[in-house]
C-alpha cells in the first residue's frame, strides 16, 4: 500500500513545523469550543456540577485509543509510552490536582484561555514557568530519591495484567456509556427543573 506508506512516513523539516502549528491550532480551537478553556468549567467538574471535562477526556481516550491501536496494529504508528515511575506519577498527579483546581486550568487549557482573554490564566502561565524551573533545580534530588521508587518502566495495562487492549477498551466503552447515559439523564432533569422554576416565576 504505497499510499499508506507515504501517509505513515513522519513529516520532517519545515513541513513538520507548519503541520505542528496547524495541529496546535486545531487543538486550541477544540479546547476553546469544548468550553474547557474556562475556569468555571474546570472547577465545576471537580465539584460534580459540570461534566464537560470528563466527557471530552473519556471520548478522546476511547476514540483516540481505538484509532491508535488500529494504526499500531497496521504498522502505521508507534507507541510513545512514558515510564511508569509510580511514586513520581502519583505524587506529581496529586500536586497537579491541587494546582489545577487552585489555578482553574491545566497547562493546555491555560494557554488557550490566556489567548482568549483570561488575564488570570496569563498570570498562571508565569507560575507554570516558575514551577518548571523549580522542578529543574530539584531534579537531581528527585531523580535519586523519588523517580526510582516503584519504577515499572514503559508499561501498558495489557503488559501488567495480561488482559488484551481490546478488552480494556470494550470495558472502558461500557463504563463510559453507562456513566454518560446517567449524567445526560440527570442533566436533562436539572434543565427541566430549572425551566419549570423559570416559567413559574414569570
Amino acid at each position: 500500500m504505497p499510499f499508506l506508506a507515504a501517509v505513515a512516513a513522519p513529516v520532517s523539516g519545515s513541513s513538520a513545523l507548519i503541520a505542528s502549528l496547524v495541529f496546535g491550532a486545531i487543538f486550541g480551537v477544540l479546547l476553546h469550543r469544548g468550553g474547557v478553556a474556562h475556569y468555571n468549567t474546570i472547577v465545576n467538574q471537580f465539584r460534580f456540577r459540570d461534566f464537560t471535562v470528563l466527557k471530552i477526556m473519556m471520548t478522546a481516550i476511547l476514540v483516540g485509543g481505538l484509532g491508535v491501536l488500529a494504526l499500531h496494529s497496521a504498522g502505521l504508528a508507534n507507541y510513545h509510552i512514558k515510564a511508569a515511575n509510580m511514586l513520581g506519577v502519583t505524587l506529581g498527579a496529586a500536586i497537579f490536582g491541587v494546582g489545577m483546581v487552585v489555578y482553574g486550568y491545566c497547562p493546555g487549557t491555560a494557554i488557550t484561555a490566556a489567548a482568549s482573554g483570561s488575564l488570570h490564566a496569563l498570570v498562571g502561565l508565569a507560575g507554570l514557568l516558575v514551577g518548571g524551573t523549580l522542578y529543574a533545580f530539584s531534579f537531581p534530588w528527585i531523580a535519586q530519591h523519588v523517580l526510582p521508587v516503584g519504577a515499572l518502566g514503559k508499561v501498558r495495562l495489557p503488559d501488567v495484567t495480561g488482559v488484551p487492549a481490546l478488552v480494556w477498551f470494550a470495558t472502558l466503552l461500557v463504563i463510559a456509556a453507562v456513566v454518560f447515559f446517567l449524567i445526560e439523564r440527570a442533566e436533562r432533569r436539572t434543565r427541566a427543573a430549572v425551566a419549570t422554576v423559570d416559567s413559574e416565576s414569570r
Binding site: M57, K82, A83, N85, G88, V89, T90, L91, G92, A93, A94, I95, F96, G97, V98, G99, M100, V101, V102, Y103, G104, Y105, C106, P107, G108, T109, A110, H120, A121, V123, G124, L125, A126, G127, L128, L129, V130, G131, G132, L134, Y135, A136, I142, V146
Partner: peptide, 20 residues
Amino acid sequence: AFVGGILAMYGARLADGCTS
C-alpha cells in the same frame, strides 16, 4: 492563579506529563 500554576507545572514535570 500564580501559585496554582507553580503547583500544576511542578506536578506535571514530576509525573512526566500533564492532562494532555
